[in-house]
Write a protein that binds this DNA or RNA. Structure first.
Length: 822
DNA sequence: GACTGAACTATACC
DNA sequence: ACGGGTATAGTTCAGTC
């Protein structure tokens, strides 16, 4: 039966039927029904031919290729037909054969048989099948389409596929056209969280599972305690019954997105492992399949027909640059984004929980799902807009690293350039790229330490991106030797040349930057969160494009283009600094794309005119922007030597808002006491314009510390493990503490763990710091001398030095601090 | 055992 | 393995006397 529906694709999957590839897309219809679209997949890839082949030679080659057939264990795969096309590859026009094959999965195998001398390159055999499908059919995620096709209703097509799918409607597509109207789509989200006694996946039973969804849908499922009056708690006989109810509720709710926080790495694999132990099928998929885990660098959990969204993964790979949370824990991120915290619950083994305590545990468990739901709601505009722009499924976009996002964007936008997609680098190429010498990067101006007044900040908008566009720096425009009408860029040990004819990479980047500008304008007029999200997405892409060209895993890697980008950016900012100086302004500081200088009694209007004048002479799309006026700013010396420290300064604006960069205040590996004290003195100095109050405050803190009146809590030092503990060559304090945590307390300390410790007094003379490091709850007295000399004073010394104050004089009994004082 | 520079390590800036 | 280079600064390590 013929059927036409309006449909929005959400989740993509591929399957084989009679040895051919098909794509299965799950999404929603306009009236909110869950639908599945089956579409065929034209499996093909390209071989790029040598130039100047005669028609006869090509025909002969085609005939040879068309006989290729390979047998794998289960299927025979062959070349169906070939077509000759004129395509572009890396900006050059090339003759190419389009090879249609029966099964795309065998494309790499078939390319191995194509070692004919007439063939220069084989391409597009190494794409993800869904990526290739979306490019080919332009059936893009999170957009509305009109689907016209055959209704599958208990039909025998595809082996009764439709009958096994838990959807309202299933259609074999004949025609897919983009709808004119694109109404807003609000996906149905369900969030979940589990609690266990042991974090080792599957090691012990799951104690409870919470669920939270729209219209205040809330559940806590448990089998541990039946003693509760909380209406949302449901109790079961055993773990298996609880798991069964979990699956039942998910299916009834029928979410588009099932979301957890770190659920890829914990909740979902744990659920699966416990289901296995109970010999129970965790059949969450719409085809009743169980979650499937792919082992990349990190575990990834996929559920068929439902988008499994791990909010933590998205935050870590994309969103963390907008956050200032010290860790990406649910608690820290929720505090920052939602101004809400996890519920109070002191973790203890379930055997030690008293009957009247369980309710608090249930509330805690539910709160985690609620926070995850709120985070999902908050971040979804960003995730959806990014998905629409990148044109990959939300499942991938929410997990991919920035390099993959840039690459996917490129691949999905190459068609209008008639370009064949470059291949992924081989392992040996990656090795060679990684071994390449590093190139010279950005310029950082050495500041002269001091307190300054009335500071102006300018910065270049998307500087590196605008340089790439302006000078046409990319793989397809690069040449190692001079060509007519090419731009020469002097690098450290070589010269690089870039053609003036615009390449697709700079052209695409130009579009991205233009769209960003447009969105920004739009948002200024109408504060729509989706416009903001779109603007953010383009900004992210524009900023990542430079790093992409220098990234060893990139299809369009060109180190010379990256090096030239940095070199030209450096040249331009230096010229701009000179220009500002020539107008009588003292330039205080500059880092990469920003310049700070003294207003020097000039009016704001004159500053604006200066900006316009500079802009009128900048090349291409390069643009300098006004960042802000600051009433005061402080730059300090390095700890060693008397020169000004780079990447370390503090500013205050007219509304007394602080902007602190690089100082210990913003570093999480310093104890709270040092950070708070430093923050306070920076604030008073910048507010008052003098150091008087700051000195008094420091004296007070020193006194308290010496009297041991500072609580230990403020002296805990946190350091993150950046690699497995056995790989450390130097046994620093945090490494020793981590080892003890693992050996004495049986606490797992994987990469990324934030190790907490304090430095205690020692009976031994000249003991190493690591020998004095103790766990926060370990008995001992903190070492006053250490905290004075290694934490507090270093944090305030360089700041007070600007006012010629010797910190040591603030310390009573200086002989303990420095023997030279005698 | 004291001292010193190099190596290792973590974190921040843009 | 999953953007790039620039920079500060603490602690340990290894060599010297």
């Amino acid at each position: 039966m013929e059927k036409t529906i309006n449909f929005i694709p959400l989740d993509y999957d591929s399957f084989d039927f009679q040895d051919k590839n098909y794509i299965k897309i799950v999404g929603r219809t306009e009236d909110g029904k869950k639908a599945c679209i089956i579409d065929d997949f034209p499996a093909y890839f390209w071989v790029i031919l040598q130039k100047g082949l005669k028609d006869k030679q090509i025909k002969k080659l085609q005939n040879k290729i068309e006989t290729i057939s390979i047998k794998k264990a289960k299927r025979t795969s062959k070349v169906i037909k070939t077509e000759l096309h004129q395509k572009n590859f890396l900006g050059k026009s090339v003759p190419a054969l389009k090879l249609f094959i029966t099964n795309y999965k065998d494309a790499p195998k078939i390319t191995e048989l194509l070692d004919f001398k007439e063939i220069d390159h084989r391409r597009e055999f190494d794409l993800n099948i869904i990526t290739k499908y979306i490019i080919e059919k332009k059936f893009k995620p999170m957009n509305w389409y009109k689907i016209q096709g055959e209704l599958l209703n208990n039909s025998e097509d595809f082996g009764n596929l439709d009958a096994s799918l838990d959807v309202d409607i299933c259609i074999k597509a004949n025609e897919i056209t983009r709808s004119e109207s694109q109404p807003d789509f609000k996906p149905k989200i369900l969030c979940y969280d589990i609690e266990t006694d042991n974090v080792e996946i599957g090691s012990e039973p799951i104690l409870m599972i919470s669920l939270y969804g729209e219209n205040n849908f809330r559940k806590v499922l448990t089998w541990k305690s039946k003693d509760t009056t909380l209406s949302y708690v449901e109790t079961f006989e055993d773990e298996e019954d609880m798991l069964e109810a979990f699956v039942k509720y998910v299916k009834e709710y029928s979410p588009d997105i099932l979301s957890g926080y770190f659920s890829d790495g914990f909740d979902l694999p744990y659920l699966k492992a416990r289901a296995d132990k109970n010999k129970f099928k965790l059949n969450l998929g719409i085809d009743n399949s169980q979650p499937v885990f792919s082992r990349g660098r990190i575990l990834t959990g996929k559920i068929k027909g439902i988008i499994h969204l791990d909010i933590f993964r998205f935050i870590r790979s994309i969103y963390s640059q907008y956050l200032q949370s010290e860790t990406l824990s649910l608690n820290d991120v929720s505090s920052e984004l939602l101004n809400e915290k996890k519920a109070e619950w002191e973790h203890k083994h379930s055997s030690k929980i008293k009957p009247n305590e369980w309710e608090n545990y249930f509330k805690y468990n539910l709160q985690d799902s609620i926070l995850t739901y709120k985070l999902a709601e908050k971040l979804l505009p960003d995730i959806i807009e990014f998905t629409k722009i990148i044109q990959e499924p939300l499942f991938n976009v929410s997990r991919d690293a920035m390099s993959a996002q840039v690459e996917n964007y490129i691949m999905h936008n190459l068609e209008k350039y008639n370009e064949i997609i470059e291949k992924r680098p081989h392992a040996h190429q990656i090795g060679a790229r990684r071994a390449e010498e590093r190139y010279e990067g950005a310029f950082v101006l050495q500041p002269i330490p001091g307190l300054y007044e009335d500071i102006v900040f300018f910065d270049f908008t998307s500087m590196y991106g605008s340089v790439i566009v302006t000078y046409n720096l990319s793989k397809s425009t690069y040449s190692h030797k001079r060509k007519p009408d090419s731009l020469k860029v002097e690098l450290e040990n070589q010269k690089a040349y870039f053609s003036k004819k615009q390449g697709f990479f700079p052209q695409m980047l130009n579009e991205i930057i233009k769209k960003r500008k447009q969105c920004k304008k739009e948002y200024a007029l109408d504060k729509n969160p989706f416009t903001k999200a779109k603007s953010n997405s383009y900004k992210l892409l524009a900023n990542a494009a430079y790093g992409y060209q220098g990234f060893f895993g990139a299809r369009y890697y060109q180190l010379e283009a990256a090096a030239a980008t940095a070199a030209l950016a450096k040249e331009k900012i230096k010229e701009t600094i000179e220009k500002i100086k020539s107008k009588g302004h003292e330039v205080v500081y500059s880092d990469t794309d920003s310049i700070a200088f003294l207003q020097n009694k000039k009016s704001n209007k004159e500053i604006q005119e200066l900006l316009e004048e500079i802009n009128s002479k900048l090349p291409g799309i390069m643009e300098l922007d006004f960042e802000g006026f600051f009433k005061r700013g402080i730059w300090v010396t390095k700890r060693t030597g008397e020169f000004g420290a780079k990447k370390k300064y503090a500013l205050i604006d007219k509304n007394n808002n602080l902007k602190i960069r690089g100082f210990e205040t913003v570093r999480r590996d310093w104890c709270t006491l040092a950070r708070e004290t430093q923050n306070k003195i920076l604030k008073t100095i910048l507010e008052d314009g003098n150091e008087k109050k700051a000195v008094e405050h420091v004296k007070e803190v020193i006194k308290k510390l010496k009297e041991r009146k500072i609580p230990l809590q403020k002296l805990i030092i946190k350091t993150q493990l950046k690699k497995p503990i056995e790989e450390y060559k130097a046994q620093g304090p945090h490494v020793i503490i981590a080892k003890r945590m693992q050996e004495e307390q049986k606490i797992k300390v994987p990469i990324g763990t934030l190790i907490k410790y304090y430095i205690s007094e020692s009976t031994k003379k000249r003991a190493l710091i690591r020998e004095r490091a103790k766990l926060p709850d370990e008995k001992g007295e903190y070492d006053i001398e250490y905290y004075l000399n290694n934490q507090l004073l270093p944090a305030v010394e360089n700041i007070l030095e600007v006012f010629k104050i010797n910190t040591k004089e603030l310390v009573d009994g200086k002989k303990q601090t420095n023997l030279m004082d005698f």
